[in-house]
Design a protein around this nucleic acid. Structure first.
Lengths: 234, 234
DNA sequence: TATTTTAATATGTCGTACATTTTTATTTAA
DNA sequence: TTAAATAAAAATGTACGACATATTAAAATA
């Protein structure tokens, strides 16, 4: 047998086992948001463990947003916000290189895939908003001195596109992916000539296509806009 | 002032505050994965709280994968897997309707955006694998009786496309999004005529385009393949 | 010097106690 | 009898102390 087939010895702590039991219970009980949970002492007795251990297991579900507890009253099933925990761990410094690369690509995937939604939902006000950003951007001279503000406009523009999608989850994704994206670009391609602001298709071009072109034009231009990045993935 | 501007009174529990303090500490200390953390008692003393409370706050970070603790030895900074918590809460029954809709759209975004990666990385073996699925699929008669197995092939085919992307994060995303996608489609559009297997562009068409067409052809066909779903979003 | 034994250490688990606030039950007053 | 006031019960949050256990470091021994 290959050594890779060897699974690490189970060193499950008791709380880990309790967590499993609770997970099974929650699933089998077919509970839905708002439903009450048994009291801590009841659970502890049912599983034959201390309240301390039960509380730590419950704390995990609480952290994940699966349950909610109201002081002095009891616990109930919650409707978790799937992104909130994602956001908390999205720190570039903590993520390993593989994940960083994945996130880099993921942003590109989202950016292109989002084009459909943008075209489906764009309004005159949206265009106007983007235009105001591009105006300001063009008004800012392209000197290294201004790169920070230009990067801000860059982020604003792309964030604006996501806002048009109207998909809150997508918007939040973009928001948490962006810093990771920037970080990994600089980390893996520190070539100073490859500025993150150097695009063969400008935001102005994109905006004009958004106004007058088709969704296919727009997506195509977006891909060219992101060419610097696409070239980096193999 | 609008009532919506009113923020709920802060009813932060002590552990919440401890969590905040720890978060600040972790950030300011500029720790990286593998670095050791102070002992529980030290933290408790530094913050002037009991070990119980500290442990609960630490447990949250442990749940998120930000820290890791080795029994009898100490705690250290970990490299969190950002998706693992996401996966844990991705239960259709728990998510609210807005989130369900967002996830539905997100799958479409990913599916279209992934086309680029697929074309960039497809190999002969990948094509062969997809072909084997499509063969089996076509061999299965289109009767309600076989819908379960056909759905399985459908999932296999699309999963296969994500596998080609080589992006593990993306693959896992697809995997956790798929059940939510199916669930919300049935929930919001229970029309039995709108089968999830009824596509004007078949998997065979997609496969042939993947073999002989361009990435633009492929994406275009993918959009048509998903037309049933795209029509559902407004 | 090398090996064995001992001691110190840090997290995991347990039990008990109490604070606090909500809910329920009881008592009191009109 | 009904309504208000009061008391009791209930449940989570927090604290403290204790011990188990396995690792690591230190000390003792051959």
């Amino acid at each position: 047998m290959k050594i890779s087939k060897l699974k690490p010895i189970e060193t499950l702590t008791q709380v880990d086992k309790i967590e499993q039991s609770l997970q099974d219970y929650l699933e089998s009980a077919n509970l839905q948001p708002g439903d009450a949970l048994p009291k801590e002492v009841e659970l502890a007795q049912a599983l034959g463990v201390s309240r301390t251990a039960i509380r730590e297991a419950l704390s995990r579900f609480r952290t994940l947003g699966i349950i909610e507890s109201r002081k002095n009253r009891g616990m109930l099933i919650a409707s978790p916000d799937p992104l909130v925990n994602f956001e908390r761990v999205m720190s570039p410094k903590l993520l390993n290189d593989d994940t960083l690369r994945d996130m880099f690509e993921l942003r590109l995937v989202l950016e292109v895939g989002n084009c459909e939604l943008v075209f489906k939902r764009k309004t005159a006000a949206d265009i106007e908003y983007l235009e105001s950003i591009v105006d300001k951007e063009e008004h800012t001279a392209q000197s290294p001195k201004n790169s920070a503000i230009l990067i801000k406009y860059d982020i604003d523009f792309h964030s604006g596109l996501y806002k048009i999608s109207g998909n809150d989850t997508l918007i939040r994704f973009q928001k948490m992916l962006m810093p990771v994206f920037m970080y990994s670009f600089k980390k893996f391609h520190p070539d100073p000539k490859q500025s993150i602001l150097n695009h063969e298709v400008s935001h102005r071009d994109l905006l004009n296509t958004l106004k007058k072109g088709t969704v296919d034009d727009f997506r195509s231009k977006m891909k060219k806009h992101l060419r610097n990045y696409y070239d980096k993935i193999s």
